[in-house]
């Protein structure tokens, strides 16, 4: 009896969610069409607000997931934020177009996307200059150097006690400020940007790697000691695997820092290439659509880099309690 009733309410909840989604997309399409045809602002905004309210209501039902079929419930963790993001994007577009917001203030997403595809060669060359030439090599060198110094700290307690407080202090400083000096030392091209990234990524890796190398438990260490294992054997068989979650944490922090460092260092001078260069010159020319297009590329590059690291981390630290399936 109750099973039948709940099945019926299942269907009812799912139907109302579907109806909301359908009504929302219909209204959204209507609002977009009217906005682009130059309808009056108040009409467009009313439609947009109605769409937003419907989407929000759909999200409330979906995120509660009570009485929804299991397929919809399983989709919820991805669908709810996606719907929210799409709604925001829609509002941005409709408000910019409908209220004729000046491009200098905020260009519409459609405008940014059009600019993005029209300028792919330029943006691609900028991406190579900033990401491939500066950010990634700097990230590799800085992280590797931080790790090697952490190993040295492991051998020398004096070094560790001296460097860790300094490392913690430096991580609170606006290191990015040394960019003009590095540009002066290493020239305008990617070398100075890579150097910036090296400096920025060194300390997070140092501090995390030292913590990671201390992460292996006492019994696990005693075990290796009872085998008469050498420092290297203990490192490879126990301490390095145990440090992996810490090392990946640093690599992920450094991935975001690398892109920021490379872009901001370009504000202090570059050849006529690079994402930071593009942002600062196009801002000067008030062509904000190009600036936003560069930001979109930076966001995609940043999240792809980060996402790749997350996937790799899941493979390497499959044994960690947070990853056990």
């Amino acid at each position: 009896m109750s099973a039948i009733a709940s099945a019926a309410s299942d269907r009812k909840q799912a139907m109302s969610l579907m109806a909301l989604l359908a009504a929302g997309s219909l209204l959204a399409t209507l609002a977009l069409m009217l906005a682009h045809r130059g309808a009056s602002g108040s009409v467009v905004i009313t439609l947009a607000l109605a769409t937003w309210a419907i989407a929000w209501f759909a999200n409330v039902i979906w995120s509660r997931s009570e009485g929804l079929p299991s397929l919809l419930t399983r989709l919820a963790p991805a669908a709810v934020p996606l719907l929210f993001g799409l709604t925001l994007l829609f509002l941005w577009e409709v408000i910019c177009v409908g209220l004729k917001v000046p491009t200098v203030l905020l260009p519409a997403p459609s405008l940014i996307l059009a600019r993005l595809f029209a300028s792919l060669p330029t943006l691609g060359a900028d991406f190579v200059q900033t990401f491939v030439r500066a950010a990634v090599p700097g990230w590799l060198i800085g992280s590797a150097a931080g790790f090697l110094v952490a190993l040295a700290c492991d051998r020398s307690d004096f070094l560790r006690r001296g460097l860790i407080p300094i490392g913690n202090f430096v991580s609170a400083l606006p290191i990015i400020g040394i960019a003009p000096i590095l540009v002066m030392w290493f020239g305008f091209d990617w070398q100075s940007k890579a150097a910036m990234v090296v400096v920025m990524t060194f300390f997070p890796m140092l501090v995390n790697a030292v913590a990671g190398l201390a992460a292996a438990g006492r019994l696990e260490r005693d075990l290796m000691y009872s085998y008469g294992a050498s420092w290297l054997q203990t490192l490879l068989a126990l301490r390095l695997p145990a440090a992996m979650p810490f090392l990946f944490n640093a690599l992920k922090i450094n991935a975001s820092l690398a892109l920021i460092g490379a872009i901001v260092a370009e504000f202090f001078g570059t050849p006529t290439l690079g994402m930071g260069f593009r942002i600062s010159t196009e801002v000067g020319r008030m062509s904000l659509d190009m600036v936003w297009a560069t930001i979109v590329i930076a966001a995609i590059a940043g999240s792809a880099f980060f996402g790749a690291l997350v996937l790799l981390e899941k493979r390497v630290t499959f044994w960690h309690p947070s990853n056990r399936g």
Partner: peptide
């Protein structure tokens, strides 16, 4: 609940994006 599930993934994801690069846009806008 709805706000948490809508917003938190975006806020966490924003950590991997160089949002500092938006600074010039804000100054100009």
């Amino acid at each position: 609940n709805a706000l948490r599930r809508s917003l938190m993934p975006w806020i966490v994801a924003s950590q991997s994006i160089p949002i500092l690069a938006i600074a010039p846009i804000i100054i100009v806008a």
